[in-house]
Design a protein around this nucleic acid. Sequence first.
DNA 1: GAGGTAACTTCATATTTAGAAGTAAGTCAA
DNA 2: TTGACTTACTTCTAAATATGAAGTTACCTC
Lengths: 159, 159
Amino acid sequence: MSRADLSSQTCTIARAVALVGDEWTFMILREMFLGHRRFDDFLRQTGMSSHLLSQRLKKLVAEGVICREAYSERPPRHEYRLTAMGRGLWPVVIAMKQWGDRWLGGGETPVEIVHKGCGRVSQPRMTCPECGEPMAAHDAAPRLSETFDKERQAARRQP
Amino acid sequence: MSRADLSSQTCTIARAVALVGDEWTFMILREMFLGHRRFDDFLRQTGMSSHLLSQRLKKLVAEGVICREAYSERPPRHEYRLTAMGRGLWPVVIAMKQWGDRWLGGGETPVEIVHKGCGRVSQPRMTCPECGEPMAAHDAAPRLSETFDKERQAARRQP
DNA sequence: GAGGTAACTTCATATTTAGAAGTAAGTCAA
DNA sequence: TTGACTTACTTCTAAATATGAAGTTACCTC
């Protein structure tokens, strides 16, 4: 199975990964959450090749994660912005940042997050909205839907 | 710049992405958080090639995200488990799942999360630990460290 | 001793990526 | 009014990476 086929799976993680789960797409998203919008900025700040950047931007536009807008008619100039769908990826990028800071950072934190609501530097964390407690891996038990469970049982029995 | 070079960047997101930011690594992590530990299970449930699976597992072991342990001496059999570092990736996978459910799921939720603490089905979300409020993209302002900011200004001026 | 299983490895082919170079439509400065 | 510069790309080729099929090792079970 190729990476592209992940998008047709039942699992929503697989679908999400097919769309935004590659290295350079993450780097583009990082730039967007840092406020950048232009092709050349993405190019210079990520270090990716222009060919790939072009491909990734097209894919993200086609899927509705970002949109392409003219900010000047003459000369014709365009920029890319996150849509609501794209802004929804903030927790993913932040979770990745927190993990990188904790396990790969060597004590330094290149980017801090200021919570506009309370004005403080914040290290956002996953919390259960039902009881308000913070959640980590050992606090959670996955429960598969019947359909999905059957699908996976079938996969187990494959050669 | 190649994908491998991301690991030597200052940005901790880039470093995290270099380590776990590819499609198949995400699929392996999904399986691990669903409780699977064996090579053949990963193979069947993810649909990836055995060659790649082998490479990815080696990389994750080498970096300390997972560990390889014998569960039988004769015949020699091994399984893979998440380390503390690996379990720390739970928020990333969950954030990805929430986003997939919201934007790509078509109304179905193949996996639900039960919070062991309160016993309820939970949709964990990012919260500011300083004030307890939920956080999303528009609530957050990034603040770059001086060193990192300079590095990025320099990148802007590159040809 | 035939068949099966877990956990891989090897190999040939196919696809994707990286890096360099090139292009179009304009602006700006002398 | 020409030549340099900018943004936002596209094209090209070589190199790296992924895929799928087949093979391997070391056992176990019937």
